[in-house]
Design a protein around this nucleic acid. Structure first.
Length: 863
RNA sequence: GCCGACGUGGUGAAAUUGGUAGACACGCCAUCUUGAGGGGGUGGUGGGGAAACCCGUGGGAGUUCGAGUCUCCCCGUCGGCACCA
């Protein structure tokens, strides 16, 4: 046995053994409870970043822990391989996205292997291969048949110079990222998936997801956004024709306070009113400028303009003016809102700005209403006033009465409205899954027949930033119409990459199946028992996957209702940002590795210097690692310097999985030091482990109790996935084994404790640091494979103690302690505590009102 | 703007969920060791105070015998917002 810890050699050897034995191959249908542990698959961006290392370490710890607990574990890996970065890289380096992507996959796969993850590589998949994406196409056609996929127009960001559609992230401050031209909105035809048909179920079945974080479920529920309200109509006459303007409101109780109505710029009524009104037409055009991002729309200045049109109030018949408002969203409700400035903050601001009347119609606990400034309570529920026959009714009663009256007039009724919109999947981009449609002059949009799938994406194009290169590629474009056989044109839009990631977890169950999308093996492995990924996916990816699973269920392809039983959302990896203003006024960022920190004698930070020139740099705070801020740490360098086990141990020890993790080089060294110490301790005491006849019962009682307490703690923390305290427990065990008390133990006591303690410690550590654990497990003669070693049981008898220490409080303040027999009665404890001199001092002369005894913990005397 | 979180020593954090705040580490200080390049051991380390003690979990109020934990208000930071993945 080597006397020094040599991670590189150990890790390589252990990994080779695993590979030779195919140790992580998951057996379909094995006779053990299954545990499908899935980490969100990576986008092959080039090399692993720390977020990946953290994500996959968490997954690996859970996988290995469950394997030792007797589960049949599946931990697969794949590549979310389509997407925008490959096109950007192509433009920058003139390399086809396909080559760039496959090269990245090869490199990152090597990195993942060097981290020792227990992955079944035989199930690997990449979404950019025809073997995978043909099933996107196949299922899209099934959705078309069922009416779950359809075509309509949608709004996109348009760069007028490059004549191309931009992604939201390519719009910077309202301008195209390459051209700097102001972005415009443009309406184009797109394919949509009818996720809204599943709104009710997507919302209701959130309640069955007990293994999901509450906050993720809340965010999804809010996203789906079920609201109960009233749909009502404002009748009007235009060019001699009677018509109705429909609006949706959740506050029908305020309908008597309507002083205007506002429609979206895209609303038909706005278009109509703009005819012959150049000023209004110009305003509508102005509204259409800018991008489509919701955050941008919601924060822009509220603006409006009169249309010159009037509608009638549905209940009073009063004339109401119609406005166009840039804050009215065409995509929600009816694209029109009733303006109740008395009780809606946005309407209030709008009315103030344009001098529209404000009419309060709700009384909230009699509080005085002032028209001067908005108060948040103006929007609270209350009792109707100034509302004619509805006066005195509360929220529920007035909504009921108003809805009934509207219904009688044929001008409205109660309605449920959803915030969730259908999912637009068309992307005007090259590096994605082709949408299997052919456009024929005589037959229209014709689905590609199943027999002609997959529609293969040519892999040798190099995009140049001015639109989709498929549009210039006759070999792809020209296709005979599947219906009439005449020359026709292939659809060149590709699918949103969220489509790819909406079902990959099903494909892992049967990745070798080439005749079907999925086979019966999905019903063995699914649902995923534990899903792990970033909190940033809390809504979109997870919601789309839930929808897709339900759609596949309804087509008889899977039997599950929900894809992910338990969800862990891991926190992000952060690092400090250092920068300096250059002479030209630009900000230059320095990697933390190039910076030396200054401390005072108490260890407090006083400054930071650039190592290269010794001059100060400014700290820009601790932020998520990014290329642009140059604060990333390359996992590769870390693995090469300290080994995979140190990287893994540091990641697990430093923060609980769900919290953000701030990078710290000293912390990494601390983790390395611990593993070195562990190895050295094992090597120094090798003789003690070798062939000893020591029995646990010989071990010193206090030390053995402590060992089992730490084991109990580690078990508790593994189950609740708080791995930082598992690592702490492992450190405490090594501290214990090295302690004076154990060193001084007589008889076979030391050997007994060391042997049991080390066998427990190595198994606790094995999921986190599998290489060193395996090497020591074998070196010290505990067995051949720690991978499948049974989890150590807690010996309850070791935990028993004769006496316990209780904390004594007087009036809630800590005033000392007392040692009592563990079986002492409440009365005995009270007597003992009241008699003790340290308590007498505080109680002296005062009346004891109450004595609270918390068994096993404390006694509080109230005087 | 809307939705969701999070604020504990110089730092990462712990506190078995309302019961000794700061476990375990990092850093720093002291000290020992001939250690040579990034080594190892021991002790100390929330603030104040000579001590008894007092004060301390972003700020303010409240509930409770008892609050880091529960309630309300405020401040700050972060994530998502439908074409980044």
């Amino acid at each position: 046995m080597q006397s020094q810890y040599q991670p590189a050699a150990i890790e390589q050897q252990v990994q080779q053994e695993w590979a030779a034995k195919n140790a992580f191959r998951a057996i379909d249908g094995a006779n053990k409870p299954k545990y499908y542990c899935l980490s969100m698959f990576p986008y092959p961006s080039g090399k692993l970043h720390m977020g990946h290392v953290r994500n996959y370490t968490i997954g690996d710890v859970l996988s290995r822990y469950h394997r030792m607990r007797g589960y049949n574990v599946l931990q697969p890996m794949g590549w979310d391989a389509f997407g925008l970065p490959a096109e950007n890289a192509a433009m920058a380096n003139s390399v086809p996205p396909a080559k760039w992507t496959y090269d990245n996959i090869a490199y990152m796969k090597k990195q993942l292997k060097s981290l020792g993850f227990a992955i079944d590589w035989e199930r690997e998949l990449a979404t950019c291969t025809p073997e995978y994406y043909r099933w996107n196409q196949w299922f899209f056609l099934r959705m078309l048949e069922k009416g779950l996929a359809y075509k309509k127009t949608g709004t996109v960001n348009w760069d007028p110079v490059d004549q191309t559609v931009l992604a939201n992230e390519q719009v910077i401050d309202g301008r195209g990222w390459r051209t700097g031209a102001p972005v415009e909105k443009r309406e184009i035809p797109m394919y949509y998936l009818a996720i809204t048909k599943y709104s009710e179920e997507l919302l209701a079945s959130l309640e069955t997801l007990n293994g999901w974080p509450e906050r993720v479920k809340t965010m999804q529920a809010n996203w789906i956004g079920k609201s109960f309200g009233v749909r009502l109509a404002f009748p009007y006459e235009l060019n001699g024709k009677a018509d109705k303007l429909w609006v949706f409101t959740t506050r029908a109780d305020t309908v008597m306070g309507v002083t205007f109505v506002a429609v979206a710029a895209e609303h038909a009524l706005a278009t109509e009113a703009a005819k012959g009104n150049p000023q209004l037409a110009a305003f509508i055009e102005e509204c259409k400028r800018g991008g489509v991002q919701e955050a941008e729309l919601a924060t822009q200045e509220k603006k409006g303009m009169k249309t010159g049109l009037f509608v009638s109030h549905p209940l009073t018949g009063e004339r109401i003016e119609v406005w166009v408002g840039n804050y009215v969203l065409m995509s929600y409700g009816e694209g029109a809102v009733m303006g109740v400035p008395g009780h809606d903050e946005r309407d209030f601001a709008f009315a103030k700005k344009y001098g529209l009347p404000i009419v309060p119609v709700i009384d909230v606990d009699g509080r005085p209403y002032s028209l001067d400034a908005w108060q948040p309570w103006y929007a609270d529920h209350g009792v109707c006033v100034n509302s004619g026959e509805y006066d005195g009714l509360d929220f529920t009663a007035s909504v009921d009465a108003i809805a009934a009256d509207l219904k009688a007039k044929g001008l409205g009724e109660k309605q449920v409205t959803w915030r969730l919109r259908d999912w637009g999947i068309s992307r005007q981009r090259y590096w994605g899954c082709p949408i299997p449609i052919v456009h024929c002059k005589s037959c229209g949009d014709v689905p590609v027949p199943d027999s002609q799938l997959p529609v293969v994406l040519p892999e040798d194009c190099v995009p140049d930033g001015s639109g989709n290169p498929l549009n210039k590629l006759p070999s792809f474009l020209d296709a005979p119409c599947p219906k009439c056989g005449n020359p026709a044109r292939r659809e060149t839009d590709t699918m949103d990459t969220f489509v790819d990631s909406s079902w990959y977890f099903l494909r892992y169950a049967c990745a070798d199946q080439d005749g079907k999308m999925v086979d019966e093996r999905v019903n063995y492995w699914l649902p995923v028992d534990q899903y792990i990924g970033g909190i940033e996916h809390a809504i979109l990816h997870l919601l789309y996957s839930r929808f897709w699973t339900k759609a596949m269920r309804d087509l008889g392809l899977v039997k599950i209702d929900e894809p992910f039983t338990r969800l862990l959302t891991q926190g992000m990896v952060l690092n400090e940002i250092f920068s300096r203003k250059t002479d030209s006024g630009r900000i230059q960022y320095f990697n933390p590795a190039e910076v030396e920190l200054q401390f005072d004698e108490t260890g407090k930070r006083t400054g930071a210097l650039l190592k290269a020139d010794g001059k100060p740099v400014e700290s820009g705070g601790i932020r998520t690692m990014s290329k642009s801020k140059n604060n990333g740490v390359d996992p590769q360098a870390l693995i090469e310097q300290f080994g995979a086990d140190t990287a893994r141990f540091f990641m697990m020890f430093t923060s609980p999985p769900e919290d953000t993790l701030a990078w710290n080089d000293d912390g990494v060294e601390g983790a390395y030091r611990y593993l070195k110490r562990l190895w050295k301790f094992a090597a120094d005491n090798r003789a003690v482990f070798d062939g000893t006849a020591a029995r646990p019962a010989d071990a010193p009682r206090d030390a053995r109790r402590e060992l089992h307490q730490h084991l109990q703690q580690a078990n508790f923390d593994y189950e609740r996935k708080q791995f930082n305290t598992v690592a702490s427990a492992a450190m405490k065990i090594l501290n214990l084994l090295e302690s004076d008390a154990v060193a001084k133990a007589t008889g076979g006591g030391r050997a007994a404790l060391l042997r049991e303690g080390m066998s427990v410690l190595l198994r606790i550590l094995s999921p986190i640091t599998p290489h060193i654990s395996q090497a020591l497990w074998r070196e010290l003669g505990f067995g051949t494979e720690i991978l499948d070693a049974p989890w150590p049981p807690v010996d309850e008898s070791a935990l028993v103690r004769d006496e316990i220490d209780l904390v004594v409080q007087v009036n809630g303040k800590h005033r000392g302690g007392v040692r009592v027999p563990s079986e002492a009665s409440r009365e005995a404890i009270e007597r003992l505590v009241l008699a003790s001199p340290s308590v007498q001092k505080y109680v002296d002369g005062q009346t004891v009102k109450k004595v609270i005894v918390v068994p096993g913990r404390l006694v509080n005397i109230v005087v």
